[in-house]
Design a protein around this nucleic acid. Structure first.
Length: 673
DNA sequence: TCATAATCCTAA
DNA sequence: TGAGTTAGGATTATGA
């Protein structure tokens, strides 16, 4: 935990360190302790809350009020900014700092203490002082702290530029500047709005609402305090969303051009003047002429901008205008500090603009207006269908082009076009031509842009594809993967690594036989018990209270089991639960075979390798290879490599996998933080 | 065996 | 001043 003049920073401080310190002080009767704020005599206040949102999940949390100081909990920031399989300080530090935090076990203390200066230093730095008794909040974050626990968050803060990014977000949503204004934001008045602590502890709504309130005040408008919208059913769907075009699955060995609408939903709201204050109630719509109002494709009516300019379009215009300037300044900037500020700012402005639409559709929110959100998506659906149609109509041999173009896929604001050319450069040229021609058919500021070419392109299904990503004809920029196992954190590392390697071999090296051989070797390793346990750990989020689940699932049952073993360290709502599938009698359900990896390790439980092959590896690999290989099933999943070694009985000491795994995974599997 | 519901996570 | 949205694939449990 770091204490500066106006901020407190650390890892999991809000739910562990602060409550712990406060409770200990109370237990010890240190009555002058809980005065950390900058208002003399004002005691800090703590209460339990449950935060729940679809995007951030449900989490129990402490809410601590400390006047005049920002509480910057790195755990909260990283949970919001990054989707990871594990949020332990150890794993996060390894990921972002390339630095593992080594723990010192208590059995090594006397040895280190009796050693030399270096071993004593190690003890001081790494030994985590246990402080379990007063623990009140169950989570995988171990109630111990070492010097490193203070030092690593500081490094993360700097490395991830969190100070810049969060202060910029606070500023674009209108918070008072906590630091001197190094680079003022033109047209954005930074004197009303969202405190940094809100950015970490509350949702998206507060940011949008803050902007609406500020703009309404400028205009002299009042924002109504609406009663909870009736008929707001939180599990159903309130209105129709975007169109996802049919995916023509396959392995494309021709360049596929991608056309994207830039900031689609914000630009729709600006182009059509969609706002609370421009909406014409259904029963009054008849009283307006076509000169005065527009009817959106969902049938909702809005007045045109010459009669009344909406607040939302104006906010969006300012946000996107400011972003354009930030990006231009970023291009010119040379000073690393200025660059960090500007990049944080352009990101904040983009996120901010994109959340306005969602805010209008949030029926459980403060100011829902489904006429706006339903109109936005309806315009969007019309636009993507139109774009597809225009591509098909224009790029034909009849019109003098070398081939008939085909839209092979598209999602919400993008279309993927096969112009049936063999060169990336030609695909780019046609892509630019299409973007320009189609943009001309839409109202300003709607803009269809050519963004990139995929070549080759492996389209598996809707929302799932991979390809090499080209923005210039000379060389590809990267491999891009969407929705496939490699980008999903609920798969074990083995599956992610195998799929990733196969994609590389197929797309990059163009070596399909090599990919097949690799799969066979991996399956053989798995079945021969040669797989490191750390590769087999699956993680899933505990999204609600264990009791509230309607069915039985592996991670939930494990959470239940762990609570019986030790309530203090059992997973809590919002935590991610790591587990492995261990061997059991035939016919036993998967949810009865899930086990805590550390428990499995310590008790030498054998892993159910067959289960990993059949349930986690086989299908993803078949999906990957089916568009490429004639006999994927036979080549990958039958033959010598699928023969398992004679399985050790659960009690046998010779569980090769466990001994092997234990030696190799001690560092990465220790429970921490 | 097959359809369905619950759940998780991702694309946009 | 509590909580952005919908679409969609995949896995698992469950019951007809």
């Amino acid at each position: 935990m770091q204490l500066t003049r106006s901020a407190l920073a650390g890892y999991n401080i809000v739910n562990f360190d602060f409550p712990y310190l406060i409770e200990r002080a109370a237990a010890l009767g240190v009555s002058d302790f809980p005065f950390w704020g900058r208002i003399r005599g004002s005691r800090l206040r703590m209460k339990d809350t449950t935060f729940s949102s679809k995007a951030y999940g449900t989490r129990e949390s402490k809410e601590i009020t400390i006047e005049g100081r920002v509480q910057f909990d790195l755990l909260q920031a990283i949970q919001r900014d990054h989707k990871l399989s594990s949020y332990s300080l150890n794993s996060v530090s390894a990921r972002f700092l390339g630095e593992q935090k080594e723990d010192v076990h208590h059995s090594a203390i006397s040895e280190l203490q009796g050693g030399n200066e270096e071993t004593r230093r190690r003890l001081a730095v790494y030994w985590r002082v246990p402080c379990a008794p007063a623990r009140t909040h169950a989570s995988p974050y171990c109630p111990t702290r070492s010097l490193k626990d203070a030092y690593l968050p500081q490094r993360l803060l700097e490395k991830l530029l969190l100070t810049y990014n969060y202060i910029e977000m606070a500023r674009v949503t209108g918070a008072p500047s906590l630091l001197p204004t190094f680079f003022p934001i033109p047209h954005i008045d930074a004197h009303l709005g969202v405190p940094i602590t809100f950015l970490l502890s509350r949702g998206q709504s507060i940011k949008v609402l803050s902007q609406i309130l500020r703009k309404a005040q400028q205009r002299g408008l009042l924002v109504p305090n609406l009663p909870r919208l009736s008929g707001a059913n939180s599990d159903g769907v309130a209105y129709e969303g975007a169109t996802v075009l049919e995916a023509k699955a396959g392995f494309y060995e021709q360049p596929i051009a991608t056309l994207d609408f830039a900031s689609l939903y914000p630009s729709i709201m600006m182009a059509h003047n969609l706002c609370y204050c421009t909406l014409v109630p259904k029963q009054q719509a008849g009283g307006f002429s076509g000169e005065e109002v527009t009817r959106s494709p969902s049938g909702d009516v809005f007045v045109k901008p010459h009669l009344a300019r909406g607040i939302l379009p104006e906010i969006l215009e300012e946000l996107l205008g400011a972003r354009k300037r930030a990006k231009a300044d970023l291009k010119k900037a040379t000073d690393p500090f200025e660059k960090a500020v500007l990049d944080g700012r352009q990101l904040a402005l983009k996120v901010s603009a994109n959340s306005v639409y969602g805010f209008t559709g949030a029926v459980v929110g403060k100011l829902p207006c489904l006429e706006i959100s339903a109109s936005v998506t309806a315009y969007g659906r019309q636009m993507i269908e139109n774009t597809k149609k225009l591509v098909h109509e224009r790029f034909t041999t009849t019109n003098g082009y070398a081939a008939d173009a085909e839209v092979v896929y598209g999602d919400t604001d993008s279309v993927m076009v096969n112009f049936r050319t063999d060169t990336v450069g030609e695909a780019m040229r046609l892509g630019r031509e299409a973007a320009e021609a189609i943009t001309a058919t839409f109202l300003k500021p709607i803009s269809l842009e050519f963004e990139k070419v995929y070549f080759p392109y492996l389209l598996i299904s809707k929302k799932r594809y991979a390809g090499l990503y080209w923005t210039r004809p000379e060389a590809h920029d990267k491999m891009d993967t969407k929705g496939i196992e490699t980008v999903r954190r609920d798969n074990c590392l083995l599956v992610r690594q195998v799929v990733e390697t196969c994609l590389q071999k197929i797309l990059l090296e163009r070596d399909v036989p090599g990919a097949v051989a690799f799969v066979q070797a991996t399956i053989s390793d798995l079945l021969m018990n040669r797989m490191d346990l750390s590769l087999l750990v699956i993680t899933k989020g505990l999204t609600q209270e264990v009791e509230d689940y309607d069915n039985r699932a592996a991670h939930v049952e494990l959470a239940r089991k762990m609570r019986l073993r030790d309530p203090a360290t059992a997973p809590a709502v919002g935590d991610r639960i790591p587990y492995v599938i261990v061997k059991a009698a035939k016919g036993v359900k998967a949810y009865e075979k899930s086990e805590d990896p550390i428990f499995a390790l310590e008790n030498n439980l054998p892993i159910d390798c067959q289960h990993y092959l059949e349930h986690y590896l086989a299908k993803p690999l078949l999906r990957l290879f089916e568009p490429i290989l004639k006999n994927a099933q036979r080549e990958l999943l039958s033959g010598d490599h699928t023969r398992a070694i004679s399985q050790p009985t659960p009690t046998a000491a010779g569980g090769g996998i466990m001994r092997f795994a234990k030696a190799r995974t001690r560092c990465s599997l220790v429970r921490g933080d």
